[in-house]
């Protein structure tokens, strides 16, 4: 199976390992499909997650709070004011090329903003939206 091969490629190597955004997306998609067969990544769902005001954290209510309303634009950390490079791979080629880094930030940012870890489907939706480069 193609999906399994990609998962092995992406997750089978513990150290910093270069991957393409497409490969990382494919591995989240494969994981989501295992949980709910028939799952397809959705730009609309991804955009919703990206912009939704969760209100779980007073200072960090939404992903767009730090990453701005548009993934192709540079952002700023809402508390520290540190500049954040664009999330869209079309604007910043470093994005979504290190599976461990991607996992780490999904874990941290979803925990803070959403109040729990994001599911594989949510990660795939988010990436699909962000990779459009709007």
């Amino acid at each position: 199976m193609k999906g399994t091969a990609i998962i092995l490629l992406v997750l089978g190597t513990p150290l910093v390992q270069a991957a393409t955004p497409g490969e990382i997306l494919a591995s989240y998609r494969a994981e989501a499909t295992r949980v709910s067969p028939g799952y397809r990544p959705s730009v609309a769902q991804g955009a919703h997650l990206y912009g939704r005001q969760f209100g779980v954290s007073e200072k960090m209510p939404a992903c767009s709070g730090c990453h701005t309303a548009r993934p192709s634009q540079p952002g700023r950390h809402v508390v520290t004011d540190k500049a954040i490079k664009p999330l869209a791979p079309t604007a910043n080629a470093e994005r979504f090329t290190d599976p461990a880094k991607v996992e780490k930030w999904f874990r941290r940012n979803c925990t803070e903003v959403v109040g729990r870890e994001c599911s594989a489907a949510e990660k795939a939706d988010f990436m699909t939206f962000v990779m459009e480069g709007r």
């Binding site: 954290s57 508390v79 780490k104 874990r107 941290r108 940012n109 925990t111």
Partner: peptide
């Protein structure tokens, strides 16, 4: 971590 999550 000061209202954020910096776990490693």
């Amino acid at each position: 971590h000061y209202g954020d999550n910096a776990s490693l």
